[in-house]
Amino acid sequence: MPKSLVVAALFLAIAGCATPPASVHTKDPASSTLQGDPTRPAQAQWIRTELYFSVGPLEGKEGVVSPARWREFLDQEVTSRFPDGFSVFDAYGQWRDHGAKEPERLATKVIVILHENTAKHDADIEAIRLAFKRITGDLSVLRLSQPAVVSF
């Protein structure tokens, strides 16, 4: 048997004995957290960002964002930037413009994104806000960002 084949066979035999990588999920039923996932480091500085989107007046007037259009927006603008996940809540909102006698009563969607505090994520959030403004013509998308303690 040639020496190179012996070396290759020895390498394959040794590699076959290696232990498989540990699962990133806990095997400990007493632990409530995900363990050992290097993409979600415990020491990272996390931010909780909430974005508030008006999807139209409650009275059913013009300007309502349809469920299909909302899903399209999520797929194209939000999921593409935060593929690891986010949450969406239905909400009721009120907004009173300067000088208005009555507030606008609005159907609202709130997106909550837990993300590391990076310039890239900040830019992604601003891109989401701008995209919605372009799509709907709204003047603003409310943003609330604050530090968060996160455990997966």
Score class of each variant (00 low, 15 high):
140 S>C: 07
133 K>M: 15
101 K>C: 00
99 G>M: 04
81 R>Y: 08
140 S>H: 08
59 E>A: 13
150 V>G: 01
35 Q>V: 14
29 P>T: 03
139 L>N: 15
107 A>P: 00
19 T>M: 11
115 H>V: 08
123 A>H: 12
50 E>T: 08
149 V>S: 13
96 R>E: 08
27 K>T: 14
25 H>R: 09
139 L>S: 14
94 Q>H: 08
150 V>P: 05
113 I>N: 00
86 F>N: 01
25 H>F: 13
39 T>E: 06
91 A>H: 01
131 A>C: 14
101 K>M: 12
82 F>D: 04
40 R>L: 10
135 I>N: 11
110 V>T: 12
118 T>F: 03
66 S>L: 06
83 P>L: 02
114 L>W: 07
75 D>P: 07
67 P>Y: 01
117 N>V: 00
115 H>W: 07
18 A>H: 10
26 T>Q: 06
62 E>I: 13
145 S>E: 05
53 F>D: 02
90 D>W: 01
130 L>I: 12
48 R>W: 03
79 T>S: 14
111 I>Q: 03
60 G>R: 09
78 V>R: 02
112 V>E: 06
134 R>T: 13
93 G>E: 01
70 W>V: 01
130 L>V: 15
20 P>D: 06
23 S>K: 11
44 A>P: 14
42 A>W: 03
58 L>I: 11
71 R>P: 02
115 H>L: 01
145 S>A: 12
146 Q>G: 14
27 K>C: 05
42 A>E: 13
37 D>C: 13
29 P>V: 10
84 D>M: 05
70 W>C: 02
115 H>R: 13
71 R>H: 11
81 R>A: 07
85 G>K: 07
73 F>P: 12
149 V>T: 09
70 W>R: 09
27 K>I: 02
148 A>W: 06
150 V>K: 06
98 H>F: 00
91 A>E: 03
56 G>A: 10
68 A>R: 14
118 T>G: 10
45 Q>G: 08
35 Q>E: 14
43 Q>W: 05
31 S>A: 13
74 L>V: 11
132 F>K: 11
21 P>W: 04
123 A>S: 15
89 F>H: 13
74 L>F: 04
107 A>L: 12
42 A>P: 08
56 G>P: 12
102 E>H: 06
24 V>W: 11
96 R>N: 05
123 A>R: 15
112 V>M: 04
93 G>P: 06
120 K>S: 12
89 F>A: 09
38 P>L: 02
50 E>D: 11
119 A>R: 14
106 L>C: 00
135 I>F: 10
77 E>F: 00
104 E>Y: 03
124 D>G: 10
117 N>H: 11
81 R>S: 10
108 T>Q: 11
75 D>L: 11
142 L>K: 10
97 D>L: 02
64 V>I: 02
122 D>L: 01
127 A>H: 07
36 G>A: 04
62 E>H: 13
101 K>L: 13
141 V>Y: 11
120 K>V: 13
104 E>H: 08
81 R>F: 02
55 V>Y: 05
47 I>E: 09
88 V>W: 02
75 D>W: 02
138 D>L: 08
137 G>N: 12
105 R>H: 11
79 T>V: 13
76 Q>F: 00
101 K>W: 02
81 R>P: 04
35 Q>S: 09
21 P>T: 09
56 G>D: 06
80 S>Y: 06
50 E>V: 04
66 S>A: 05
88 V>T: 15
127 A>C: 10
35 Q>N: 08
40 R>E: 04
85 G>C: 08
